[in-house]
Amino acid sequence: MAQILQYLANGLVFSSIIILGSIGLSLVYSIADFANFAHGDTMTLGAYGAFVAFGVFGGLGGTILGLPIGFFLSLAVGMAIAAVVAVLTHIFVYKPLDTDSIGLLITSIGVAFVYRAVLQGTFGTDFLQYDIRRSGPIPVLLDTLDVAVTQRDVAIIVSAAVLVAALHLLLQRTTLGRKMRATADNPDLARVSGIRTDRVILVMWVVGSALAAAGGVFLALYSQLDPRIGFEILLVVFAAVILGGIGSVYGAMLGGLLIGMLHELTPLLSDIGLPIGTAYAPAVAFVIMVAVLLVRPRGIAGDMT
């Protein structure tokens, strides 16, 4: 039982990362109308951006949830870098294209490779770590529930929750959010209603990439940083988006939560005797994705926006 609780706790951390990635992917899918294969590498880009920034700000004193203030500053820098790069990519690569959503999909693979080539060429392929000391599990949780959760895990979950809540407020309580939802729902109708959809699309790239970058930073913090982390997790993020229903931000959150949990629950399979090790965790996610595509292509929340 404690074992399952432990998996669920791990799942919550991993879900937080997947949710941050899947929101942006879902936004691009609904507003720009293509499967953006560069999204994973946008996550990596943000993680490296924060890594560089952390070299500058890392010394700033004070800690929140066991992480230095400088880390959160670096996180913001990483998010900003990813947003700027994504907007530039949109303006110089995607926007001038006269092609359909399949052409955009193929182009996005080219973009992903260019991002990764730059990162790999600059930083090499070695594993990197944010220079933050790891602490042991929180004693209270370990004693009462027999679950090992570090302060860092809690920081990831709380930060993700704050970002998701902020996005929720943006979408529901601001004019900009209403415009975004209208554009996602029906771009043509939004345009004839007087919404400057060009600008909304730019905002969408900013929001989606910034959240992706945050996901990338937390992924690097949770495990480690190398140029492939984003591309490797991209398929899991796609699984979350498809499970949630493409184009639905709230669906993407729900899908991210479920896929993240299932990903971390994979060890249960070998616990009950199936010869499926943890290396197959992404495979489990893909199989679920394919099953969803077959049974309910709209996803579990495909009708909500």
Binding site: T99, T107, R116, A117, G121
Partner: peptide
């Protein structure tokens, strides 16, 4: 000043982008 692996990635990526843009 760049390794062969990232250079290949870069070339493949740029080729994809330019083909779709210029000569689909």
């Amino acid at each position: 000043p760049i390794g062969a692996a990232p250079l290949r990635l870069m070339l493949v990526g740029l080729l994809i982008i330019f083909i779709v843009r210029l000569r689909p």
